[in-house]
Design a protein around this nucleic acid. Structure first.
Lengths: 231, 231
DNA sequence: AAGTGGTCTAGACCACTGA
DNA sequence: CAGTGGTCTAGACCACTTG
């Protein structure tokens, strides 16, 4: 058999037709089978391309109803959330880490809610500062579920950050994230080495292993911090 | 033929093995073919599951080298960036829109750079405010390439937001995004109806159609705004 | 050089859903 | 209820990379 275009080529070609205006939002595309014949590949290949474009938010597909360009193409960029150490080292800086506190406590209601818990339970609270070239990069206030991750108590969190240990030792299956902005109070300003009143970038993240909450974290970053994404 | 598990089932099963600790970061997985036999499906199905898990940042795959759990599983959540109108209406609020200015001008160097342009060229600059239930929701400062999208000049931007018109009439093929925080100056505070000194959430986004820049936007959101993602 | 993943083809059957 | 997408099987060949 001769070999037709690959599914990525088909994906790019369809996307190009939309981008160039040959297909407009709301328009219906040919059936997969017709496209396959036109392009000289099998329906499987067209299907794989369509699957990717649907996931990207460009197309809508319905059985019997066919494939359409979404009337409102959305953007669904993936943002990459690496381990903090790698984020810092990836920018060519030297990573540093300072543990501030690590103690047992019962988290406040909003943290329990974020972890989808209804009953209060004791957890490990870890506050720490991540540094890039010796300068404050990210301050984190983290709650770790002792019910899900009792082993964390045996870890020397002065040497390994909770972030790194958890990532390597308790993989999650799902998570939730919230990005926002906040004003630095005097306390945060001191921790992050910026002026009080500065605008901080706030990342909140919760991870679960199935239904079990692993950890909830609130991280503050000083001015200059940004999340980037290409799509 | 009997029908084995689907690729999503295989994906969830592998993820569960990692989550449960049966497979730890750094561990090597069986060959696709062995897994296929074990699970009672074909290698194609296993391959599709592995492709998804690799894209999610959980696995690393190398020809000849096999499949491993990433030593540093990262998170790659997709953030959904809808048209502003839908973002507002999706929260059950009434959408409003007010055009502030729309005029031709040459963008400053940082905007040209963000659009990957080397030579200055005249563009359309549109400043507008999006409202939710009559309250300021998002203020945007947008540059639209007249070389790529000359038709924008014939649009009544007092009635349709540039955001919405572009999305429906000039689909992009790639984009870049930057999320950060900034302090509200007196001018921004007035526009957004918040206090000067408040922390604003800043979204910058550029889109292209192939190599042609379509638009670059900088949007400011008042306190309370957040970007959410589940993964 | 051999082992592993990457992808395609060809065909089948299933699952929705809209005419 | 017929047409469209959704997915699987079975098999082949290619591409990379590491032992």
């Amino acid at each position: 058999m001769s070999r037709g275009p690959g599914w990525e080529a088909v994906r790019d070609l369809i996307r190009a037709r939309v981008t160039a205006g040959a297909l407009m939002p709301g328009d219906r595309l040919p059936r997969d089978e017709d496209l396959a014949v036109e392009l000289g590949c099998t329906r499987t290949t067209v299907q794989r391309a369509m699957q990717a474009l649907t996931e990207d938010g460009l197309l809508e597909r319905r059985r019997r109803g066919g494939t359409r360009v979404r009337p409102d193409p959305v953007a669904r960029p993936r943002v990459e959330i690496p381990v903090v150490r790698q984020e810092v080292e990836g920018r060519g800086a030297v990573y540093g880490y300072r543990l501030e506190t690590a103690e047992r406590a019962v988290p406040p209601g909003e943290v329990l809610a974020a972890m989808e818990l209804t009953a209060p339970e004791e957890m490990l609270r870890v506050c720490a500062l991540h540094l890039a070239d010796g300068r404050p990069w990210l301050w984190e206030d983290r709650w770790v579920s002792l019910a899900t991750v009792p082993d964390i108590l045996g870890v020397d969190l002065g040497r390994v950050s909770a972030n790194e240990w958890l990532v390597r030792n308790r993989p999650w299956s799902r998570g939730a994230m919230r990005l926002s902005a906040a004003v630095a109070g005097p306390e945060e300003a001191g921790r992050l080495g910026c002026a009080a009143g500065a605008a901080l970038f706030v990342t909140e993240r919760t991870t679960w292993a199935g239904a079990l909450p692993i950890t909830h974290m609130r991280a503050l970053a000083p001015p200059g911090y940004a999340v980037l994404s290409r799509f």
